[in-house]
Structures are given as structure tokens and as C-alpha cells.
Design a protein around this nucleic acid. Structure first.
Lengths: 342, 342
DNA sequence: ACACGGTCAGAAAACGCTTTCTGCTAGAAT
DNA sequence: ATTCTAGCAGAAAGCGTTTTCTGACCGTGT
């Protein structure tokens, strides 16, 4: 009767407690808990009972330390507020949880100079890392990768180094969007650019340059803009001034901001000007008019990233690097070019 | 010359390696790395040098084990795709990173029966936990809380138990929205309900009941709907059939879906019917027409949650439980009630 | 000159586990 | 009946740290 309390205590019961209660050694408890072969059924039962009544479960920390694996994956994103990364994170987290892996998330809040240390720090507490660093300079990235392995890149071409990666092909996506607008008769286009340093922006610019090179009749203007609603909204001015007939927004957010500003000014979309976004975020379908855009299956991007890191974690070779070719989704915000009286 | 490699190796250097290289004991290395008082400057320098050349940094795992703290915080959300939780997560993550805390995120994917074990599992790898579980039954929550401490609740009234919490006051928000519409002359309202079990939905219903009780002249219909675009879109049918003059959508997503469907049918907002959302997600400002809604400062919710868990982690008492009173943001989607020929 | 106290470095214990190694017991084989 | 072997439980080492404890050395005070 004067024995230690029978009820499970706050947080604390350790393997030693269980061993004591079941009158066996630590080793035996460990074996039972890990379903090891060959331990006397009677003992095993006693141990399980003791564990249960003490509410015991092994400390993940101690376990990780000795096993050398944490069952945790790090994910670095530049901005949790960005639908693209949210989607990728979702896909990733789903895959991870299915394998009972945990996800440590590090938001660099666009502080690209801190990304390096953030990634390293996060990586140290995990078994692997998935990195989204669209604006990290190529050389810094290359130098960082070896320290991070196993690592999977999202939306970054691992140029030199042979890292695993999954990405959306922004180049191809924009090319298709250009063709879409071109086929509608637009020859005066405006591209509202995102962040100069971002790889995804460079890809788009490259697509524009190529298109321009083979289409003399078309003029594509480029205006710096940004990546959010507000910037898109503010760009209405530029759009009007440019007297172009179609606008390629850096992404759907920008497009939506722009759409809103144009509507306010009484400029009709697509009758007066066509607007195309990029990404096909869930909202795009529900704008007025619904937004023409290029799909980027962000959630699948995350899933594929998980698949690759999972392979890596198990010592297998990851699947081939993947590049999703976005598809144009023609919706109401783009239409035939208006006949403009010069 | 025949010494061990001087360059930093992959991942592996341990404190022992550093000690060996610096010709001192482990204890000394540890002291130096932790900026401990009183260690001979010469030795200290030698240690630092060794650590640097080996690329050493202490294993967070081992450190956590002995220190009894992981520098990590768990966050459980029901759905990473939901802007509300995204915002809260952002706010939280920002605060955490400022204190160089890490964030482990667990997405229950709306599997409310797994939330319990998910939370416990996550909690075990962390120093504390922030829980968003809008649909977990009260009794289960109450039973869970003691196992999770220190814990902060988001959007849950900790009824009996005295847990720290931050929440949006959905009741008050909806009341204000009702008043807003009432003052515009609407007497035939329709509420598109969210998930039956969700606390935030119950709060709204309660607000409706109260309002109804004091406003005989007003009829408020309730229709089950959902929490996403698609459900809002699909609800257009119901809205039209109800012949009400104003719709209170469960949230902005539903409102946007509805808006889109109404526009497609040529129903004018707000001339024919007023639509109000809830949450004031960033998109709400940019719909056509801009969406009247009630602000819920989700990011601040996250920040405040961080403040409280941080206090708890430091053995201080958390600030008083917080309830944000949403503010109505009147925008273009609500207007005077139309004169309807009976 | 000797005892005493104060610095500071190393030895060792502890954190909570897993796993190898050791040793005991009992059953089988000769 | 005796030895070999298999089977299973406990002892102990090890994971990489921090921190307490121990002990050496040096300076000071009498």
C-alpha cells in the first residue's frame, strides 16, 4: 500500500520506472517496446501492463540520439504567406505524416541572407531537408547543398551539383501563356515582373526573350511590379499608361490585385484588356471574371518532394528530377484583342 | 603530416573531436562553447580554433536530452490549407524565430479522431504546444490539456480547465455583421453554416439566435453549407431559392465562391443581394465587388499565442486570455436592401 | 615556511534510450 | 549421465552533451 503512486504521472515516467515496476531489466523493457523477437510472453505482458499503467512511452529525444535518426524532416520556405509554398508544404506534410514523419518548418521571412544558417540549423535537428530558396544565389546554394544532404530542392534547378529537385517549369508556362495571348490577337503585351533575383522570374524573362526573338510583330514590355495583391493593384496605372492589350501578371495574386484596380476604374476585362495570372491558386477560379492562368500543381510538387527525400532517407536513389510543365487554363479574364484606334 | 584530416568533415565532428584537437577535456570545450565564465583565454582560443576548423557545432539532440528542453514548439492545425491557420502559423513562427525557437507543425488533415495522438506525439518532441482543434469535443479537450502542458489554445474557449488561450470572438463578429445588414434594411437573411461541430460555427449560431430573439421583424434562415469555395459556389442555388436579400457566408472563402456563382447567373451584388464574408482574408479586398466582412487578425492571433506559450515556457504566467472582437469592414458587397415586390 | 583559499581543468555522472555482450538455465544429443 | 547448444534476461557500453565534483596548482596571509 505504501508503494509509489499507481497512476500515470505528468510527463515523466522513464524506461527505468517501467523496468522497476515490471521487475525486469531495462533491456527487456526496451525489447518489448520495440516488439523485439524472443522475450517470454509472461514477462512481455508484465512489461506492457507496467508501461500502460505508467503511461510510458519512450522519449523521442533519447531514442533519436541513440538511433541517429529523428523521424523529422525540415522544410525551409521563404514566405509562409505565399500560396505556392503553402501548397507545397501541404503536399509534403501529408506524405510525411503517412510515414509518421514529423515536419519542422522554417520560414525565412524573405531574409535571404539568413536562409543559409536557418537551413543548417533546421537540418541539424532533422534527418533531411527540403529547401525552397528561390532567391538564393547559385553559388551560395551550391556551396550549401553538401552540408544539407540529404536534401531536395523545390523550384530550383540544381545547376551544377546533382541534388534531387522538383520544380515547375515557369519558362514553359509563360511561353504557353504568351502563345495563348498571341493566338487571341494580342501583339502589345505587358509583363508585370516579380522579384528580380528570383529564379522563377528569370525563367519567365527568358521565355519572353525567346518569344520576342521569334515574333517580330509582337512587342512585350516589362515593368517591375512585385508578387502580391497590393503591387498588382498599384500596377493599374502602369497598365493603362502602357496602352497594351494584354497583361501577364507575375502570379495570380498580382493579377487579382490588378483585376480589382481595373474594375474600379471601369476598365473592362477582357474587353478592354486581357489579364493572365500564373499558378492557378484556388482563388483564381472565383475571381470576376475568372482568371486565365497557368496551373502549377503545388501540392503535387510537395508530394513529389516528399517521395524524393523519403527515398534518400532510405538510402535509395531518388526518382528523376521532375519538372512540371504548367498548363494554360483559359478562363474569362483573357479574350480577343480589342481593335484599338491608333 | 600523417594526422587526421584537417578539413571539416560531412556532418560528424563531435565534442570529443574538438577536445582532442585542442588538447583539452570535453568539459573545457563545452564551457567554451557555452561562453562559460573563467576559462583560460589561451585555451579558449585554442578550442574555438579547433571547433572552427572542424566545423563543429553541438548536437541539438544531445543538448536537448541533457538540458531537458528542445527549443522547439509544436503547432497543431486541422488544415494547413485554411487561411486562418496559415495566418496564425505565420504570426507564431515569426515570434518563435525571434527567440530562436523552432516550429514543428502537425496537420491533422481534419481527422479529428487522430488529433489527440497527433498532439501528444508532437508535444513529446517539443517544449510546448499550440493547439488549434476547433472540432474536438469539449470533454476530450479537457482531458487532453493536462497531458499537453504547457499549452496554448487558439480559437477555443478553455471552458472548464484554465488553459491559456487566444481566440477571435466569432459571436460578437457575427452580431456586428447582423447589425450592419439590419441597418441596411435587410430583414430576410440567410446564414450559410460551416461545420456543425466547429466551435466557431456554434458561436455564430448562438449570435444568430440572440439576434433573432430581439428582432421580431427579421427572419434569419440557416442553411448548411461548408467552409470552402466550392461549397459557397454550390450554395447559389439555395440563396436564390431562399429569396432573402442578404447572405452571411460562414467565411470569406464561401462568400467568394458564392459571389462568383451569383455573378455568373447575372445576379447583381449588392443590388439584388448583399453578401458578407467573415475573416477578412487578404483576398477579400480584391474581389468584385470587394467583400464586406469581419476582420479576424489571424496573424496577431498567432503572435499572441506565441507570447503566451513563451511566458509559460519561462515559468511566468501567461497574459490574460485574449478574445479579439472582429470589426466589420463594410465594402462593396453589401448595400441597402432592395425593394422586393412581394 | 606552512596552511589556507581561490582558480581553473579534467574526471565522472547523468540525461533516457538501444544494442551488444555476457552468462545462466534448460533441453537435446551422445 | 555429461556435454553442447539454444534461448532468453541482465549488465554494460555507447549516443553527444552539460554539469557537478574532485583535485592540482598558485598566490596570499601569518
Amino acid at each position: 500500500m505504501g508503494k509509489p503512486p499507481a497512476t500515470a504521472r505528468r510527463a515523466g515516467s522513464t524506461i527505468t520506472d517501467v523496468a522497476a515496476r515490471a521487475q525486469v531489466s531495462l533491456s527487456t523493457v526496451s525489447r518489448v517496446m520495440n516488439g523485439s523477437t524472443s522475450v517470454d510472453p509472461a514477462l512481455a505482458e508484465r512489461v506492457r501492463e507496467a508501461a500502460l499503467s505508467l503511461g510510458y512511452s519512450a522519449s523521442p529525444l533519447a531514442r533519436s540520439l541513440v538511433l541517429g535518426k529523428t523521424q523529422t524532416l525540415a522544410v525551409v520556405v521563404p514566405d509562409l504567406g505565399n500560396p505556392t509554398f503553402q501548397g507545397a508544404l501541404r503536399g509534403l506534410s501529408e506524405g510525411a505524416s503517412r510515414e509518421s514523419y514529423h515536419v519542422l518548418i522554417a520560414d525565412s521571412h524573405e531574409q535571404i541572407d539568413e536562409e543559409r544558417v536557418l537551413a543548417i540549423e533546421a537540418r541539424r535537428r532533422c534527418d533531411g531537408i527540403v529547401l525552397c530558396a528561390p532567391r538564393m544565389p547559385d553559388d551560395e546554394l551550391a556551396e550549401l547543398l553538401p552540408l544539407l544532404a540529404p536534401v531536395v530542392l523545390i523550384n530550383r534547378d540544381p545547376s551544377s551539383s546533382a541534388a534531387a529537385s522538383v520544380a515547375a517549369d515557369y519558362r514553359s508556362g509563360l511561353t504557353q501563356l504568351l502563345q495563348h495571348l498571341h493566338s487571341l490577337g494580342h501583339h502589345e503585351l505587358l509583363y508585370l515582373a516579380g522579384n528580380e533575383k528570383a529564379a522563377s522570374n528569370r525563367d519567365r524573362l527568358s521565355a519572353i526573350a525567346d518569344f520576342q526573338a521569334t515574333h517580330d510583330e509582337t512587342r512585350i514590355e516589362v515593368a517591375p511590379c512585385g508578387v502580391g495583391f497590393a503591387e498588382g493593384y498599384a500596377a493599374a496605372e502602369t497598365v493603362v499608361a502602357s496602352r497594351t492589350t494584354a497583361v501577364l501578371a507575375f502570379n495570380d495574386l498580382v493579377a487579382m490585385g490588378l483585376l480589382s484596380a481595373l474594375t474600379e476604374r471601369g476598365i473592362r476585362v477582357p474587353e478592354d484588356v486581357s489579364v493572365a495570372g500564373f499558378d492557378d491558386i484556388p482563388f483564381a477560379r472565383y475571381t470576376t471574371p475568372p482568371l486565365t492562368t497557368a496551373t502549377v500543381p503545388v501540392e503535387e510538387l510537395g508530394q513529389q518532394a516528399w517521395q524524393r527525400i523519403w527515398a534518400l532517407l532510405n538510402g535509395r536513389a531518388p526518382a528523376y528530377n521532375l519538372s512540371f510543365g504548367p498548363l494554360v487554363v483559359p478562363r474569362g479574364s483573357t479574350g480577343p484583342a480589342p481593335h484599338r484606334p491608333a
